[in-house]
């Protein structure tokens, strides 16, 4: 009766809060849907305000529940969506590689993200619609340079084919987890966007530090 066969979705060590931001129509909701349902949602309607999705992943043997807030890209919702940056552990900033305007707006999104989140919030830049190579308007190198200059992680992904979608979400989680390990994220305080299920033992910093440099993610 009380065996663990169906306890899967309820068994996790941390909750990480993510927020997905970016211009209208870059495919934020589709990325989320691809990540949570592993399906591409064609004809996705515009998001009203914010939507919410969850999935449990595993990082270094730890079960982590991702609580993902998908915001509306439309300008008129900016006032509403700004309130959701609060306490996000990860921010996925999305642009559309086939529309330069969405890339040009990144700096304004980045300003928002930087000013409204924790300094340790991991910001991941995602160039979506990577499957539409023929219509490419923003080169990989250019975006990569932008990411490097601003200290962002960067990937090109495709919500349609699912390529790199998992990676983006997982690597963000890995980075956050690493921040926990090396102690830059204090879990015993609320609103870091990370919630441990049990009070965390303080990590041994000597042990965690080296992993910072040899990290592959």
């Amino acid at each position: 009766m009380s065996n663990s066969t169906n306890s899967g979705p309820y068994n996790y060590t941390y909750i990480f809060k993510y927020i997905i931001i970016g211009d209208m129509g870059v495919g934020k909701s589709c990325l989320l849907h691809q990540f949570t349902e592993k399906k591409f949602m064609a004809d996705c309607p515009h998001t009203i305000g914010v939507e919410f999705g969850t999935r449990i992943i595993e990082v270094s043997g730890q079960k982590i529940k991702l609580q993902i807030w998908d915001t509306a890209g439309q300008e008129r919702f900016r006032a509403v969506t700004r309130s959701y940056y609060r306490g996000a552990a990860g921010a996925l900033m999305v642009y559309d590689i086939t529309r330069r305007s969405t890339y040009n707006h990144l700096s304004s999104w980045l300003t928002d993200a930087r000013s409204l989140t924790h300094p340790n919030t991991v910001i991941y830049l995602i160039g979506n619609k990577g499957d539409l190579e023929a219509q490419r308007d923003v080169s990989y190198e250019e975006a990569k340079q932008f990411a490097d200059e601003n200290g962002l992680l960067f990937l090109e992904a495709s919500a349609k084919t699912g390529q790199n979608v998992e990676e983006a979400f997982l690597e963000t989680a890995k980075k956050i987890y690493q921040n926990i390990l090396d102690g830059s994220l204090d879990l015993n305080a609320a609103e870091t966007g990370v919630q441990p299920k049990q009070p965390m033992p303080k990590p041994v910093s000597n042990e965690a530090k080296p992993s910072d440099s040899q990290c592959s993610c």
Binding site: R86, G87, L116, T117, H118, P119, D186, N188, A189, A190, E191, T192
Partner: peptide, 16 residues
């Protein structure tokens, strides 16, 4: 409690 904390105390060392 959490609500009041979020309103008045914010996160650790005031962030958020």
């Amino acid at each position: 409690k959490l609500f009041i904390d979020a309103l008045t105390k914010g996160g650790p060392s005031g962030n958020p």
